[in-house]
Design a protein around this nucleic acid. Structure first.
Lengths: 149, 149
DNA sequence: TGACATTATGGGCATATGCCCGTAAATAAC
DNA sequence: GTTATTTACGGGCATATGCCCATAATGTCA
């Protein structure tokens, strides 16, 4: 009996997709709980953080960096636009492209949020282990590359 | 300079939450693409598979097994009920509880879907590596336990 | 047994996710 | 230079996710 056959009836232990989705749900709740203190979700924080790091970007470029569907990014921007944290402007050279920019208010909120993100990081890593967390991120990064190809 | 400081400006490489969410999105697309052949999503497949394995269950029990919010499970059942794959009945002994059951049609659809789930598994593991996949699932399982506590 | 806490669930709300399709603009083909 | 293709985006649709609150039923405790 192979180990595959042994636990064939236990979906959670053999399905790579279920495993990563369960973990994403669980870990997201941990980070969302901290970021709720400043009224942001994990996804929103990641958009602001990437935009801060990359500077003004097209939606396509940012979506690719975030490993996110373009359309999904478009949807995710709505609450951030409404709050005035990001701004969309039409590119001058290519009028198809919309340049997404972090506003001053967005930058302020991002800096307010960072300590809470760090707190979530510390909480998770103090429980899971710093070295294990590094290994987790590494294997997940490789999984993203593998699934994308 | 520690390695933390070295890549402090690269959110994707340091944030455990972002890493697992990106991987979940990417891998989900791979599985959803296969399961689309039988008109199921990854989440729906996992509900049917767990229900088949566990037998009739309360929503709370099933949600806990799936590492899913109770309310989320309730929402996820709507399309499955509409299609007639699951059935909700009031428990006789405890009328608060709703017993969730897999219908005959649900069982049929589940068995139809299994080969496509297996195909997704094979596609992912032939690219990522069978041993790496096992390691991935193991570290994710530990991460779930860690974040839940 | 009657007040209170606990448990199981549903409804409403908001965001998250990605598909398909349409539109508009830029680029390539000829 | 006109047509065809590609690229960038938005709108609409459906599901996914989880919070908060309300309701109903059960259990507890004096």
């Amino acid at each position: 009996m192979t180990s595959d056959e042994k636990d064939a009836g236990r979906p959670a232990s053999v399905c790579n997709c279920l495993a990563v989705r369960q973990a994403a749900r669980q870990i997201t709740q941990l980070y969302d709980a901290e970021l709720a203190e400043v009224g942001l979700r994990t996804t929103q924080y990641s958009v602001l953080a990437f935009l801060d790091r990359l500077g003004p970007s097209s939606l396509s470029d940012l979506a690719e960096e975030l490993v996110l569907d373009r359309s999904t990014l478009g949807h995710n921007l709505r609450p951030l636009e409404r709050e005035g944290f990001v701004r969309l402007a039409t590119d001058r050279t290519d009028r198809r492209t919309r340049r997404l920019e972090l506003t001053a208010a967005g930058k302020v909120r991002l800096e307010e949020a960072r300590p809470y993100w760090q707190k979530a990081q510390r909480r998770f890593e103090s429980s899971f282990g710093k070295a294990d967390a590094r290994e987790l991120r590494d294997i997940l990064r490789r999984a993203v590359e593998s699934a994308a190809s």
